Simulated assay, not measured.
Amino acid sequence: MINQIYRLVSPRQFEVTYKDKSIITEDVIIRPTHLSICAADQRYYTGTRGEQAMKQKLPMALIHEGVGEVVYDPKGIIKPGTKVVMVPNTPFEKDPVIAENYLRTSKFRSSGFDGFMQDYVFLNRDRLVTLPEDIDMDIAAFTELVTITVHSLTRFESKAHDRRTTFGVWGDGNLGFITCLFLKKLYPNSKVIIFGKTDYKMNQFSFVDDAIKIDSIPSNIKIDHAVECAGGKGSQYAVEQIIEHINPEGTICLLGVSEYPIEINTRMVLEKGLTLLGSSRSGTKDFARTVDIYKEFPEVVSYLSTLIGQTYDIKKINDITAAFEDDLSNSWGKTIMRWKI
């Protein structure tokens, strides 16, 4: 069969390419239905990813957050029409210690090889997780982003001490929202505080125990553990404040991506005996746990609907460009592309 792939060939320019794919394969064939635009996709789209990276990785189909429906399973195990979330991480080896998303040999869609902007996606069956039949697919589209929080909290659970009275989350964006939400569900007896800088964003965090502006944190505020979701240059200021307000032997989960090195007060890290726990991306186990949480706490899915910023029906290549351009000015939530091309 001829598969159409919609690749970014240069900043702000998409082109259709055609690839002959055999259906005589072990792969499950998925028709993408809903795709979500990520900040990483935008860095490629706008050409701000860096000249060297752009030369190495383009042309490339974008998007690593997406869901779809099964078209064909060569083993006949998964019925056509089954709703699934697609796992963008693709490992090529197994390690008894290192998780699949940290193996240097693993590839990640829309970061080195083609993402989900295709007519059909061919996936190993361990790269998909079945979704509840009644789930809102606009919300499910950004499940990959949710799995980043789930992966980080899974690592936290195995490495942090058991005193979990108060959590602090720095960053009032999408990831901060998801992290606060999941902390409240997974640790219902703990206090969760969001530390942010934008009033209208912080107003969305209706489920947290407290919301504090980062320019007016009371000196007596203390937390047991923290999650940094600020990213960029803001990561440095977030980590600085966390180190000041975290209790000794607390764990700092680092999730915000910074393009440049940041300064960290290692003297106080040492004095307090802190653990800095970095987490990146996720694997199939994290997707499975996320879907299980969707099923156990359906109200979580309802809260996640707050993150839907804009939706676009994609019927032609110009619609893709329009969605990416409008997403650049979207200050809250996720832009969802309903993939009808």
Score class of each variant (00 low, 15 high):
Gly76Cys: 06
Asp215Arg: 11
Asp224Arg: 04
Gln204Gly: 07
Pro88Gln: 03
Glu296Asn: 13
Ile293Met: 14
Tyr120Met: 08
Ala323Glu: 00
Lys57Gln: 12
Gly196Asn: 13
Asp27Asn: 15
Ile223Gln: 08
Arg31Ala: 11
Arg7Ala: 04
Lys222Cys: 08
Leu254Ala: 10
Asp215Leu: 05
Arg163Thr: 11
Leu277Ile: 09
Asp210Ala: 15
Ile193Lys: 01
Ser206Trp: 10
Asp210Asn: 14
His151Cys: 09
Met137Asn: 07
Val84Ser: 02
Glu15Asp: 06
Ser110Glu: 01
Ser329Trp: 11
Gly250Trp: 04
Asp95Ile: 04
Leu186Val: 12
Thr48Arg: 08
Leu58Asp: 02
Asp292Phe: 10
Gln236His: 10
Ile252Glu: 02
Tyr72Leu: 06
Asp119Gln: 03
Asp114Asn: 09
Arg127Asn: 15
Asp114Gly: 04
Leu103Ala: 09
Glu26Leu: 13
Lys233Cys: 10
Ser279Gly: 13
Ile217Arg: 03
Tyr45Lys: 00
Arg7Thr: 04
Phe182Arg: 09
Glu249His: 13
Phe205Ala: 04
Thr198Val: 15
Tyr260Asn: 15
Leu183Val: 07
Glu69Leu: 04
Thr198Pro: 07
Arg109Cys: 08
Glu100Ile: 02
Lys83Glu: 03
Ala140Thr: 07
Thr311Asn: 13
Trp339Cys: 01
Asp126Ala: 10
Glu249Thr: 13
Asp286Ala: 12
Leu307Thr: 03
Lys185Asn: 13
Leu254Pro: 09
Phe207Asp: 03
Ala141Gly: 10
Gly68Glu: 10
Asn247Ser: 14
Asp199Cys: 12
Glu259Asn: 14
Ser22Phe: 05
Val84Gly: 01
Arg289Ser: 12
Val257Phe: 12
Ser22Leu: 06
Gln241Phe: 02
Arg43Tyr: 15
Ser258Ala: 13
Val257Lys: 14
Asp126Trp: 07
Ser111Lys: 13
Phe287Met: 06
Ser110Arg: 09
Leu270Arg: 14
Arg125Gly: 12
Ile77Met: 11
Val257Cys: 10
Lys197Leu: 11
Ile320Arg: 00
Leu328Lys: 05
Ala39Tyr: 05
Gly278Ile: 05
Lys83Phe: 05
Glu65Phe: 01
Val70Tyr: 07
Thr166Trp: 03
Gly309His: 06
Lys213Ser: 15
Gln4Asn: 12
Met137Arg: 02
Ala40Leu: 13
Asp41Lys: 00
Arg338Ser: 11
Ile5His: 04
Asp313Ser: 06
Thr165Gln: 14
Glu271Thr: 15
Gly309Asp: 07
Thr154Leu: 10
Lys222Ala: 11
